[in-house]
Nucleic acid binder design. Structure first.
Length: 895
RNA sequence: GCGAGGGUAGCCAAGCGGUCAACGGCGGCGGACUCAAGAUCCGCUCUCGUAGGAGUUCGUGGGUUCGAUCCCCUCCCCUCGCACCA
């Protein structure tokens, strides 16, 4: 009946109450520098899913581990509580976002408690409370003071039916259907009402993250505790590129700046191209029907084909002085570089394609690096552009220079040319035309003061009551909107946009330090002590946005608010997905395993333990009901072992077997500890389960030595405690310990890892050899097995062989009289050593080998049901010793 | 196209210069226990082998080394991110 499990519900309830009573997870404000362990706070959707459970089990296990090793730990939890889903849910249910959100929070907090996550709930935050979001507004104001806020026009997705801006992910059908050959791009539709989405230009608020682009990029190098993938994604996202800006003179329009990374190819610039929305293109459109038609009807920036139209203008190539035609082309993007480019068809693939289409001249100006002494020869670029660096040709005085040198030289020589860096990173538009977010603390004065930031003493600007309307509820809140200008006292209207919720999450980790502070977002001194977050854990989907914004905020706060840290997260773990049959769990696919069901059926400890042992935290893994069952069975068996032990304490000897078990206990403790340090819970748990098996075998084979056995059980319980805390408390108590396992000291063991490795290897090899012999020799029923450790002189010989660099090893060995005395045996062994000369490594000492084998003899006895004796060399006949070597005992089996 | 990470026995998956024919798990096979099933426990699971042996393996093809799954190069394939980026 062992598969019936144990009464997990009772166990979990009991210890959750005990933790509550003991305030076990509280981190008092006066601790100096706690280990800060943090999981990315969730959006309160109302239901914990497997991804959450995995995320928070990782942080919880690590926090508990660090607590047991003696650290003070800060492990808080909060809610990313603003966001559109609450508005939609409120409309559907005829309630309001606030009530709905807090209902969800209550439910999820309950689920987290039932999972046994140990949070300091006194530090809980919810971003939708004025106590929190007032600091978003305050920070906005500080950013504004530092000129890091800007209001400007931006293109947004606009649904005319709903009268609101849509996020990109709320626009559906943007991609043309698979396989459709250029046939009609699918229209972009509003996810709610299927109305075609329009592009609108609206005034939006931006945070100037680009001011920090260089530092954000360069500091990535120092984030050694972050996964490479995330670091690389951030580098790509920032996308810095060094190049040059250079002016081309266009008649009647003055100098037009182009950005290029290949200034060395300027002699090959045979035409010039402008983005369709470049100011000059727009001017031209007013008088040139062809250009207007192209911009309005033909330009397709998303298509594969480069399209364009020739204008009646020419531009002057500043290097050659030649007049080259100017095109308006849709492959030129206004938000890349300057929105204008010098086209070099000989050395750029896209320019090449366009030149072929338009019949423009293609001139090679860079030749491949000549091999050896061969002549530089212009490449054939009629069919394909040559895009590598090389040596300049057809480039006037620059011919013969290498690309790199030529670029520098040209920057010097061309007046308008200068070094510039180009970034892919854009400023962060934070305006959202929605209700459930932080009101942007700005009023628009009717009397000419413009947009005025609300003074600090008038913060927070609180959200008005929710109005169920199609557009932005804030826009409909007439009374709320009407206000006075802080500067002139005249009539004014409130800004009706709210902030992107990523603003909330860009500093929430600071708020946990002093969540109730009334006069600042965080207590500076305490935050300087407690930050940065030592271990941050969350999904890879936040690799760029959230993590980049948080870094940005941290740097701004360091520059202007006295924060002593320039990076928020020292170590980052991007946890893998929980899958089902190789597929991501998702509601739409209907392949979701509910954590609630698992907790009800098997208990929180089983769910947690199964997840942590299934794979390394950063790997995806498959949920397996079978695995869950066997995990549950493991815990049940362990519980029985502990109960059996305390009901009837054994009375065995501290014999060789006990010594074997004791050594395994030490080894397990040491290995598991270092695996916990590395967050490789799966390996720590494997070791722990192996030890449990060893203990069970021990008890099954003989009457265990009580102290040894108990030490083993106690170690297993504590090694399991970070991951399966409830059952660990139960068993720790059953074993008669005082106090909670939460506060228990982590078991310690001093071992020599190399020694353990060799000992385990020796035992495993010897068992394997015995099996081999029994099998190959066809021994039906072995009666006695003798295991004989090699004579001391072989160990000496091995040592000499390792140390020696003499050509003639045998000669060297024979200089030792006690080896020479062995005669032929010495010569034979010497030859073996010589043959493997380069691969030799030290074994255990003879005594240690003897001891290891002796203490493991019971494993052989048990397996083969035969008497096993471990002997030293001097106890046996010389003929037996031929096969004995250091690390490999001779084996004699009696049939 | 650029960048990052990968390709290991039926499957999943460790190892990352020498005890590696390669940890562990799943699946499969055999055995113990059981009336039986399940659970548990013990083996086996590349090929050949009547005393611990030998042979062929770690995407492909080369190279470095006394020695390579492990290091270097070529190519092929997979996953992820970025991309008409000037």
């Amino acid at each position: 009946m062992s598969d019936a499990g144990y009464d997990h519900a009772a166990v979990e309830r009991r210890w959750q109450e005990a933790w509550d009573d003991a305030d076990a997870y509280r981190t008092p404000d006066d601790v100096e520098d706690p280990t800060y362990v943090l999981g990315m706070y969730p959006y309160p959707s109302g239901k914990l899913h497997m991804g959450h459970v995995r995320n928070y089990t990782i942080t919880d296990a690590y926090a508990r581990y660090r607590r047991m090793t003696g650290d003070e730990v800060l492990h808080p939890m909060g809610w990313d509580a603003f966001g559109l889903p609450a508005e939609n849910a409120a409309k559907e249910r005829d309630t309001n976002p606030r009530d709905w959100t807090f209902d969800c929070i209550d439910t999820m907090r309950g689920q987290m408690e039932s999972m046994g996550f140990g949070y300091d709930w006194d530090r809980e935050i919810a971003t939708c409370t004025p106590e929190y979001y007032q600091w978003n507004q305050w920070l906005f104001s500080r950013f504004h003071d530092e000129d890091l806020v800007e209001r400007r026009d931006a293109d947004v997705n606009w649904c005319p039916e709903c009268e609101t801006v849509l996020a990109d992910e709320q626009v559906e059908g943007g991609e043309s259907p698979e396989g459709s050959q250029g046939g009609g791009e699918a229209a972009e539709l509003c996810w709610r009402c299927d109305t075609p989405v329009e592009q609108r230009e609206l005034e939006q608020w931006f945070l100037k993250i680009t001011e920090y682009a260089d530092e954000l990029l360069e500091d990535i190098d120092d984030l050694e505790g972050w996964p490479n993938s995330v670091r690389q994604m951030q580098r790509n996202w920032i996308g810095r590129q060094y190049g040059a800006e250079v002016d081309f003179e266009i008649e009647d329009h003055g100098p037009v700046t182009a950005f290029t990374t290949r200034l060395d190819t300027i002699y090959g610039a045979t035409f010039f191209a402008l983005a369709p929305d470049h100011p000059i293109s727009e001017e031209l459109a007013e008088e040139d029907e062809g250009v207007r038609h192209f911009i309005e009807e033909e330009a397709d920036p998303d298509g594969d084909e480069p399209n364009g139209v020739e204008t009646n203008l020419t531009a002057t190539n500043p290097a050659t002085g030649e007049e080259i035609p100017v095109y308006v082309a849709d492959f030129v993007l206004s938000d890349v570089g300057t929105g204008a480019l010098m086209a070099v068809p000989g050395h750029d693939e896209r320019d090449h394609a366009f030149a072929q289409k338009m019949g423009e001249e293609i001139v090679p100006v860079v030749a491949p690096e000549p091999e050896e002494v061969e002549e530089t020869e212009a490449p054939d670029v009629s069919e394909e552009a040559f895009t590598d660096d090389g040596v300049l040709v057809n480039s006037g005085e620059y011919a013969g220079l290498e690309s790199e040198t030529a670029r520098e030289q040209l920057i010097e020589d061309i007046d308008s040319a200068e070094h510039t860096a180009q970034y892919q990173l854009r400023d962060w538009g934070i305006s959202r035309q929605r209700y459930w977010g932080t009101p942007i603390p700005v009023v628009h004065c009717h009397d000419g003061c413009g947009s005025v930031v609300v003074p600090d003493e008038e913060l927070p600007v609180e959200l008005p009551a929710f109005i169920n309307t199609t557009g932005n509820p804030l826009d409909a809140a007439e009374e709320w909107k009407r206000t006075t200008c802080p500067e002139c006292g005249g009539e004014a209207t409130r800004e009706t946009d709210t902030m992107d919720t990523f603003v909330d999450s860009s500093w929430y980790f600071l708020r946990y330090v002093s969540p109730d502070l009334a006069d600042a977002p965080f207590d500076l001194e305490q935050t300087n002590d407690w930050m940065p977050v030592d271990q941050y854990v969350g999904g890879i989907e936040h690799a760029v946005m959230h993590l980049l914004y948080s870094r940005f905020f941290t740097k701004v706060l360091a520059d202007h608010e006295g924060l002593d840290h320039r990076e928020p997260f020292t170590n980052l773990l991007a946890q893998g997905m929980v899958q089902l049959e190789g597929e991501k769990m998702s509601k739409s696919k209907g392949n979701v395993v509910s954590p609630q069901r698992i907790v009800e059926e098997y208990g929180a400890d089983t769910a947690r333990l199964f997840m942590m042992q299934a794979a390394q935290p950063e790997r995806d893994f498959d949920w397996s009901e079978e695995g869950v069952r066997s995990t549950n069975a493991f815990l049940t068996r362990l519980k029985e072992m502990v109960e059996d032990f305390s009901a009837d304490e054994p009375d065995g000897e501290e014999d060789a077997i006990a010594r074997y078990v004791a050594a395994e206990i030490d080894a397990t403790i040491a290995i598991a500890g270092s695996e916990y340090d590395d967050l490789t819970f799966n390996r720590a748990l494997r070791e722990t389960q192996d030890l449990t098996r060893t203990l069970r075998q021990y008890a099954a084979y003989t009457e265990p030595h009580a102290d040894t056995y108990e030490r083993g059980l106690s170690a297993v319980v504590r090694l399991l405690a970070p991951v399966a805390p409830h059952i660990a408390e139960e068993l720790y108590d059953e074993l008669g310990h005082d106090g909670l396992v939460v506060d228990a000291p982590w078991p310690s063991a001093e071992i020599d890892h190399e020694h353990v490795r060799k000992r385990r290897q020796l035992v495993a090899n010897t068992r394997e050899d015995v099996r081999d012999i029994v099998d190959v020799a066809g021994i039906e029923d072995p009666q006695a097995i003798d295991v004989v450790v090699a004579p001391d002189w072989k160990y000496d010989a091995l040592e000499i062989a390792i140390e020696s660099d003499a050509d003639n090893l045998i000669g060297e060995l024979m200089q030792e009289s006690h080896i020479r005395e062995q005669g032929d045996a010495a010569a034979d062994y010497g030859q073996d050593l010589q043959a493997e000369r380069e691969a030799l490594s030290r074994t255990l000492e003879p005594d240690a080998e003897h001891d290891a084998l002796e203490s493991a003899a019971w494993l052989l006895e048990r397996e083969f049901d035969a008497a096993v004796s471990v002997r030293s060399a001097d106890e046996v006949d010389e003929s037996v010793l031929k096969n004995a070597a250091p690390g490999r005992p001779a084996i004699e089996i009696e049939d």
